[in-house]
Computed example of a mutant assay.
Amino acid sequence: MSDPSRRAFALGLPLSVIGASTLSLVAGAGSAAAESAVTPVAPVAPLAQIKLGRFTVTALADGYTDMPYNYFPGRTPEQVEQAAKAQFVGRPSGVRFLFNQYLIDDGERRILIDTGPAGSLGQSGMLPKSLAALGLRRDQINAIIVTHMHQDHIGGLVVGGQNNFPNAELYVDRRDVAHWTDAGKRNAAPDYLQNSFKLSSDVVRLYPRLQAIDGEREITRGVSIVDLTGHTPGHIGVRIEDAGQSLIMVSDMVFPVVHPEGTDVYFLFEQDRAAAKAMRDRFYPRAASERALLAATHMAFPGLGRLVSDRGTLRWQAAEWAFQS
Rank of each mutant, 00 (worst) to 15 (best):
H231D: 10
Q194P: 01
V203N: 04
P190G: 01
G244W: 03
Q211L: 13
F197T: 07
D202E: 13
I225R: 01
V226S: 02
I236F: 10
V223Q: 02
I213Y: 11
E241G: 08
I225Y: 03
I240F: 07
T232S: 14
G230P: 08
L228M: 12
I213E: 04
S201D: 15
N195H: 10
D242P: 01
R209C: 03
F197E: 09
A189W: 02
G215F: 02
T229Y: 13
G237M: 08
L210M: 11
S200L: 01
D242H: 03
A189N: 03
A189R: 05
V238L: 06
L193G: 09
V226E: 04
D227W: 00
R205G: 06
L199H: 01
I240W: 01
V238P: 07
F197N: 09
I219D: 08
R209Q: 15
L193E: 11
V223H: 00
G237N: 06
K198L: 12
Y192S: 06
H235M: 11
E218Q: 13
Y207Q: 10
D202F: 03
D242L: 02
I225D: 01
G215R: 03
D202H: 03
E218P: 10
G244M: 04
K198D: 13
G215L: 06
L206E: 07
D242F: 07
Y192V: 10
I236H: 10
A243M: 09
S200I: 10
R221V: 15
Q211T: 14
I219P: 14
L193N: 08
E218N: 09
D227S: 11
V203D: 09
R209M: 14
I240N: 05
R217N: 12
